[in-house]
Amino acid sequence: MKLCDLAELIAGSILVGEDQPDLVIDRAFAADLLSDVLALTEEQTTLITGMVNPQVMRVAEILNVIAVIFVRGKVPPASLVEYANRLNIPLVTTKKTMFETCGLMYAHGVRACRSRSTCQMSDSG
């Protein structure tokens, strides 16, 4: 799915990335716990979150996140938007909940990014 279509689907606004409407969003991971994002994602992914603190973009930068979608009407501060602009990582905001956002995206073909379950982690630990 293209970034511009995704924004329309979830009734979202593109804060960063208007210049990348054709960017393909096909994998996603949703969490508010950034620890889980760091621990479990194993490939480049779109991040769906309700957290708007500066750490979100730092995690996104470290993990080479494709795009960040802020749910539940959370609006990131200007400094975060500026950071995303500098990294060229698209940001989308939506008033929909995380559940609705994930459901809509899944129904339109976006799939879970390759990840490790916490069980696997403790089993092999």
């Binding site: 969490a31 508010d32 716990l33 950034l34 620890s35 889980d36 760091l38 621990a39 979150t49 957290m51 603190n53 750490q55 979100v56 916490t118 982690m121 403790s122 630990g125």
Partner: peptide, 15 residues
């Protein structure tokens, strides 16, 4: 509250 402290930090570093 900031999304940290889930008890995965050291485990994740080791992994």
């Amino acid at each position: 509250d900031l999304g940290f402290g889930a008890g995965m930090g050291l485990v994740n570093m080791q992994k």
